[in-house]
Nucleic acid binder design. Structure first.
Lengths: 120, 120
DNA sequence: TTATATATTTAAGCAAATTAAATATTATGA
DNA sequence: TCATAATATTTAATTTGCTTAAATATATAA
């Protein structure tokens, strides 16, 4: 399980990305999908996810429709046109960030040369 | 400039990584190095960085030595043996997280097929 | 009948970052 | 020479964002 802190700030974008791939999802489903895509390394907590869904809805990026499925209440979320736009931007930003992280964390072949290789 | 939120939770690990590559660095230098490695996309704020340095020192992962260079006060930080161990773990965790992020954000060739491809 | 899985809501508290101001020296450009 | 930018650290107040945890409710498997 990846240290929780790393997900901070990325949840909103991850939600937008999943809803870009599948046009209707409910909260619980989103948590399961993230767990599956991450081999159970990332578990979204409900306390984090649901308030984010409400905020995205409030910001006009998502629309919600409630349904009863197997006697259980479900609330499906979909991207609005504005949500689709924002999703593109945010996903692209986060991809860039992931690349940047990789560069920063890149193994340094010989750290003793760092002052030569990188300037002091 | 990458949205600030994404760096959240990663700063500590980034600091440990930079100090793994270069055995003595001071705070300001760390901010410059991160900016350089990220093409100015990531700017560590001092309000975030310095308290983290104090915390790492307090936790026994860093040792600090103050010097005067060009009449300016500088505080150099180095990894302790414990800091080196923790740095390895944390860096490896964050690399894994970056990989996981990439997978989650991976462009979906045809999102209309998602319910077939991924199960509904 | 007990636990696990499904499904959402939301309050209290905490951790981590932002913002911003204080302090001080050196270098550069107008 | 005057102002601004760059160098360098500190730290308080505030805000954001997440964790923890409890409440609520149904279905299914052991």
């Amino acid at each position: 399980m990846i240290s929780k802190g790393y997900i901070n700030g990325t949840i909103k974008t991850i939600v937008l990305k999943l809803l870009s791939d599948k046009n209707r999802m409910y909260g619980y489903e989103i948590t399961q999908r993230v767990a599956a895509l991450s081999n159970d390394e990332i578990k979204l907590t409900y306390g984090a996810l649901y308030p984010i869904l409400y905020k995205l809805e409030n910001d006009g990026l998502l629309v919600a429709t409630s349904e009863i499925v197997d006697n259980r209440a479900r609330k499906y979320y979909s991207l609005t046109p504005k949500g689709k736009e924002v999703a593109k931007e945010k996903v692209s930003e986060l991809q860039k960030f992931a690349e940047t992280l990789k560069i920063i964390l890149m193994p340094n072949p010989d750290s003793r040369l760092s002052s030569v290789a990188w300037g002091s």
